[in-house]
Amino acid sequence: MIRIENLVKHYGEVLALDGLSLNVEPGVVYGFLGPNGAGKTTTMRILSGLARPTQGRAWILDQEIGQVGTDVRKLIGVLPEEPAFYTWMTAREYLRDFTAPLYGIEKSEASRRAEELLETVGLAEAGKRRIGGFSRGMRQRLGLAQALVHRPKVLLLDEPVSALDPSGRKEVLDLIETLRGEITILLSTHILADVERVCDVVGIINQGKMIIQAHRDELLAGYALPIIEVEGNNGTAGWVELFEHLPCVENIQVTNATARMLVKDVISAQKELLKTIVNSGIAVRRFEIVRPSLEDVFLQLTHRETKSD
């Protein structure tokens, strides 16, 4: 449904995309993950026609992006990061009188569709208010509504829930889940918990390159190193220096009360860590082997990529 081959994008001296390739199957919710500056938004902008690649090709629904005579915009819905609207228009006007006609939707259907979408995204009561008075979260919801007006086959969502409060995020993620199977969704986000929740496939990008692309569960099973969490009685001062040089510890993150360590082998790490704890006289409240999360995989893979550079 969405295919990208060796996409390269230069902005002057800056290399934003460095041979990115990805493939999104029909009906799938694809989580596009990466640290800031990895190239996610650049990819979205190229797919939605706002930017042109320096090299490489991309297709949506078998139509090549940027090819003369094709216009995939009729078939896709796009929610850019931080959507901007005409502040002097009402939300209803924006959907019914502006967006819908641009997709060739007839007046009566446009009116019906606008009301349906305002209801769906929780803006029914704010429909007659001018967008200039909307909060960021309301604009985000309106952005989602305008992306769905024409019932697209593909949705490109760039940070769709970043501006929303927890209940708003839940509503939008619930909506995305209802679309699973009907629409192919490429969702770019920093919020790993959301990817874990709604995405079938995860692609992790770093420094303009795809690091890994796999089904969510395969990723967790195949790429996540085990994690051991240790919680101290008296804080964690000095723990980084104590544990990071141990051969079994791949990576350590420390908060005020807890150290979270990625380890290569759980059995040998248990022995080594417990020995170190006993020898150093640290008072420990909890020592636990935890299930790695997508965040752990993400940090591990992007850290590994950065180190190898």
Binding site: G49, P83, F85, T99, Y103, Q146
Partner: peptide, 9 residues
């Protein structure tokens, strides 16, 4: 708003 306009056909 130009970007929001140009993502439409």
């Amino acid at each position: 708003t130009a970007a929001m306009l140009l993502i439409k056909p």
